[in-house]
């Protein structure tokens, strides 16, 4: 202990260097975590968060009793998480390998630079672009009528939105997502490929036996990190791109967009707090479980 204190004293300047970041994290990350206790309280605006009376699991009873809303947003959140994670990972890797395999390096670089651009456009702006494609006289309907089909009223037809949102999300994120995998590919030892060629491996076999295995640590880490956010969504995608339209809620409402709406209208404090507590707790639980599994199977790839 004395050792530790003298070490800390010796490194007091380092400690001081940490203080600003530590304070920001404390006030803007840790305090909200503590704020989750609201889920077990009957919030009274005049008393504030800490002094409001405890009510036990009362708020969660309402959450479960709400039935349809609760299950709908849970289901949608998980559904989109699965679609986005599975498709996103596959496309990220495919794109990274494709660019890596391309012999025309200059063209590949140029393509890649353009593919990254969409991630830098906010959903508040993307929303207008999607509207230009999907409104009643938008591009998509123009093309449909051009080929003699019947125009679709996209903004009132909930059944199409899982597809629209998936396309928008992939458009937005794949180019950028592949950069991480590209950097791993660039680090693969060329001799591995050369050895594979000597052993008579063709391109397909090289990718299967050299490229993909070397990507596994990165894939595991990215998946692990995303599991913690399983109950969180890209709020902009679901709030902005759908124009927060009630008609589309059946397929587009996720927990985050529900909570945002609740805050902006008049929040039912207990209910909303219970929802976010449930959201955070499930995320934590899952990341602990999955990390535990990974640590058993491949300790070097686990997060902690």
């Amino acid at each position: 202990m004395k050792d530790f204190l003298s070490n800390t004293w010796k490194h007091r300047v380092h400690f001081i260097m940490c203080i600003p970041a530590v304070l920001v994290l404390f006030f803007f990350s840790y305090m909200p975590m503590a704020g989750l206790v609201m889920a077990f309280k009957n919030f009274d605006y005049n008393l504030g968060i800490w002094k409001s009376p405890w009510v036990g699991f009362e708020n969660f009873k309402f959450l479960l009793a709400s039935g349809k809303t609760f299950w709908r947003m849970t289901f949608n959140t998980l559904e989109y998480y699965l679609i986005f994670t599975i498709l996103g990972t596959i496309f990220n890797i495919a794109l990274a390998i494709a660019i890596d395999q391309l012999i025309f390096k200059k063209i590949g670089k140029a393509f890649q630079s353009i593919m990254i651009v969409p991630v830098f456009i906010s959903y508040a702006a993307v929303q207008f672009i999607v509207y230009a494609f999907c409104s009643n006289n938008g591009m998509v309907n123009n093309i449909i009528s051009f080929f003699g089909g019947d125009p679709v009223r996209w903004y009132t037809s909930a059944e199409y939105w899982p597809y629209i949102l998936t396309i928008v999300k992939m458009w937005n994120s794949i180019g950028y997502g592949s950069v991480l995998y590209m950097s791993v590919l660039a680090g693969i030892d060329q001799q591995l490929y050369e050895a594979a060629v000597i052993d008579g491996a063709n391109k397909r076999q090289q990718i299967l036996h050299v490229t993909l295995p070397s990507l596994i640590p990165m894939i595991t880490i990215m998946l692990l990190l995303s599991v913690g956010g399983i109950m969180r969504s890209d709020t902009g995608l679901f709030y902005q791109v759908t124009r927060n339209s009630g008609i589309l809620y059946s397929t587009t409402q996720v927990i985050d967009s529900y909570v945002l709406n609740a805050i902006l209208t008049t929040p039912d404090y207990g209910f909303t707090a219970a929802t976010t507590f449930y959201q955070s707790a499930v995320g934590l639980l899952l990341i602990l479980i999955v990390n535990g599994i990974v640590r058993k199977a491949a300790p070097e790839n686990s997060l902690f």
């Binding site: 909200p32 975590m33 704020g35 919030f43 968060i49 990190l225 913690g228 985050d256 945002l260």
Partner: peptide, 21 residues
């Protein structure tokens, strides 16, 4: 530093802390 990556209060708790506290 790592904990906020694994667990977070979410937007509602943040909103309440930032505005009421």
């Amino acid at each position: 530093l790592m904990i906020p990556m694994l667990f977070s209060g979410g937007q509602f708790a943040s909103y309440m802390i930032f505005t009421t506290m």
